[in-house]
Amino acid sequence: MKKLENIDKMIGRKLKSGVFYFSLLLGWEVVCRVFELPHYLLPSPTMIAIELVNTFPLLMSHAQVTMTQVMIGFLLAIGLGFILSMVMDRYQGLKNLIYPMLVVSQTIPIMAIAPLLMIWFGFGILPKVIVVVLVCFFPVTVSLTEGLSSTDHELIDLMKTMHATERQIFFKCKLPAALPSFFAGLRIAATYSVMGAVVAEWVGAQKGLGIYMTRVMKSYRTPALFANIVVIVVITLLFVLMIDMISKKCMPWKNNQRRIEERG
């Protein structure tokens, strides 16, 4: 009974937000038609939808290039972040040295270094991958480092009394304890990564959502620009969703919070 009620409530909530967003789109459509706004200023949702359908194969071929860069950069950032976090966890002195530098590095605007990377590494995929690595590396490393150092000290002490090795303490205790924080960082990195690749492409590329964006912008094809944005948003959401699914798989204990009452 209670379960059914909960599902009812959930559907009700979903319905409400659905109605809200639909009326928002409807309002947009009405404004465009009533005031007869020029397409290059603000295209109506239907026009964007039509553009999206018509240019879908083209958009997807650009998206493929962008997402390849995103994935390579994302995985590289995870690998590098893992190594650095492990090293900093092992050698606290090094951590005190590197950590502040890491934070300062975040104040460098990507827009400023993207052209520089292009000059150094050309128009190919490499400078874009580097930008993605740069934007993802920070959230991954910080979340993992914080996670590792948040491990309950008494738990580590307990393992020491069992004569656990440093290795066992890391893999059996610190790493699992760091997972929730790590995945929270991955989520942020996922959203940054697509944005990073797009921005890097603005500077110059053969193919990709970013360069396509600058092209349609130059010819004032605003509906195509909007279609492009929709694709970027949807891809980013799917990416985050994927991370959430993986994190659920990796942390099964987070799923069942139900308490079993003691019997007898």
């Binding site: 008494e154 393992m159 004569h163 699992p176």
Partner: peptide
């Protein structure tokens, strides 16, 4: 040694928590 807090690892099932000392040694 059993500390004041139960210090069970939330990511391990009860069986795996109990088996921890055997896994380590």
């Amino acid at each position: 040694y059993m500390q004041q807090k139960d210090l069970l690892m939330p990511w391990r099932t009860i069986l795996d928590n109990v088996r921890l000392p055997l896994e380590i040694d």
